[in-house]
Design a protein around this nucleic acid. Structure first.
Lengths: 158, 158
DNA sequence: TAAGTAAAGTTGCGGTTGCAACTGTTTTGG
DNA sequence: CCAAAACAGTTGCAACCGCAACTTTACTTA
């Protein structure tokens, strides 16, 4: 009955405003910071893996990465074996950017969690992990329920 | 040093997907549900109060309310004394909608918090409240730092 | 092996958001 | 008393998002 979404929504929006201000000088925006972390940690990651990791529609990965590539932060090369895959690699420019992004994130997290005991923080994190898992599963399941049952798709009309 | 934003962002996006699906039949979208709650609870609330309560830019209040008004869910009347203010009132159509919105929210919260003890839920809520307060203050402060310094700005009605 | 299906990625579309500039009203201060 | 600042609300703009339709490549299966 309590309603955690009021808080979740506000935290999300506030983060966007603050990150945008802090990251503006590097020519990137708040929704690109997860990609930077993932690409630096897993060079050669595919766009589909990025979409799943960030929990965002794959079309957004295409566009955000195109933007970052235009700024010279990454390169994309097709996989040798499977030509469907685009593997994403960071440039030195992105590796130079990474510490600044991590600093912005560190400052933000310190600000939010300051004063809470380590036990409180761990409890919060573990609960959020469970909640996130349920939320993403529910979102995924509502998407599936919108699709046509595969039996009726083509229908063998002809 | 753990990042709570990864979870916050995913929960936020998943909620948008699920709420949009559940609310589609009523002609409203996921970002309009906070307005419905507030307008039904505080008939005559002004748009500026809505913007502060939902923690959203006032331009969005203008547009979302215009959409809801077009659907016949509310009416807006200028304040008698202060002609700058637009006071927002729910129609019977919105009052009929309210229980459905509350049901969607209740189902969502039950899904997310199921199995956690009441003590765990209360602890989570109180931590999120503190974190939200810090986040919104930080966002507000970065906005101010872009403008001229000015007096402190008001708080919340909820 | 050939036809059908699945997967990765791209693009067009509609909708939401934040921001800045604007209108109109109220309050303030010299 | 009147000009300047503050305030509520609106609008144009650019950016992001999810979705659906599409292309290209790989896999399944009959």
């Amino acid at each position: 009955m309590p309603g955690i979404m009021k808080y979740v929504n506000r935290i999300h929006r506030s983060m966007g405003i603050v990150y945008n201000n802090r990251l503006r000088e590097y020519g990137i925006n708040h929704c690109q910071h997860p990609y930077i972390l993932l690409i630096c940690r897993y060079p050669g990651i595919t766009q589909e893996e990025l979409a799943r990791s960030v929990c965002v529609n794959k079309s957004n990965v295409t566009r955000q990465l195109a933007s970052l590539e235009g700024e010279g932060y990454l390169t994309r090369r097709p996989d040798e074996g499977d030509k469907r895959l685009l593997r994403v690699y960071p440039t030195k420019k992105m590796e130079a950017l990474l510490p600044h992004v991590q600093e912005v994130m560190g400052n933000w997290n310190s600000l939010l969690l300051e004063g809470f005991s380590e036990e409180e923080q761990n409890k919060l994190l573990s609960m959020l992990e469970v909640i996130t898992d349920r939320a993403t599963k529910a979102a995924h399941s509502t998407l599936r329920s919108n699709e046509r049952p595969s039996g009726e798709k083509g229908g063998e009309i002809l």
